[in-house]
Computed example of a mutant assay.
Amino acid sequence: MKLVDLQSAVMKKYKCLVSINQCARARTQSISEFEQGMKKHYDKLWDYGEEVRRTNPRSTLKMSVEANPDGKTYFQGFYICLQGLKEGWISGCRRVIGLDGFFLKTICKGVLLSAVGRDGKNQIFPIAWVVVNIENKENWTWFIDLLKEDLSLNDGVGTTLISDQHKVHFHAFFASL
């Protein structure tokens, strides 16, 4: 929000005149508090995973973290494949999987990797997704290995992959064959 718009909104709502500097400080503090809240959400991933497991039995949730010598634990990835989506893809979707990655541009940077299918009405059908710290061959391999296990793809015969032409997807898919 532009500072002059913030100043105008304060005047309209509270009938109070504030300076541009006050608005700038308030906006900076507000953004800082929001960003701290976003970081705290990563601390809740374990609880979130347990709640998803409790409410969606037989769903697959995997957390990947790395313990460094400095004593801190660093997030690497969080994989989700809900049981209903597994069953839906296996029983009612074409044997086509679209793979893609999207950069997360919030304070908590990362990449969302997704696998989607097409149902009988040619509608997009989500299968599984993972949030990882960086898009690389190791993370794609981790994601695809878990996906192959969840969907019982074995060697992948009869399954078509569609991608945005990143070779890393296909290397990851065939790496464990």
Rank of each mutant, 00 (worst) to 15 (best):
E51H: 06
R53V: 08
R53E: 15
R54K: 15
T55V: 03
N56D: 04
N56G: 14
R58K: 14
T60R: 08
T60H: 00
L61R: 01
K62D: 13
K62S: 13
K62I: 15
M63C: 09
S64D: 08
S64R: 08
V65A: 11
N68R: 15
D70Y: 13
G71A: 01
T73P: 05
T73W: 15
Y74A: 00
Y74K: 01
Q76G: 05
G77Y: 11
G77R: 13
F78N: 06
Y79N: 09
Y79P: 10
I80P: 05
I80T: 08
Q83C: 05
G84H: 07
L85Y: 08
L85S: 06
G88W: 10
I90T: 11
I90A: 08
S91T: 05
S91N: 11
S91L: 01
R94K: 15
R94A: 15
R95N: 04
R95Y: 03
V96C: 03
V96R: 00
I97L: 15
G98P: 03
G98M: 10
G101I: 08
F102S: 08
F103I: 10
L104R: 01
L104Q: 07
I107W: 10
C108A: 05
C108G: 02
K109I: 07
K109C: 01
K109W: 08
G110M: 09
V111I: 03
V111S: 00
L112I: 08
S114L: 08
A115I: 12
V116N: 01
G117K: 04
G117R: 00
R118K: 15
R118Q: 04
D119H: 05
N122Y: 06
N122R: 10
Q123I: 09
Q123E: 01
I124W: 03
I124H: 07
F125E: 13
F125T: 13
A128M: 07
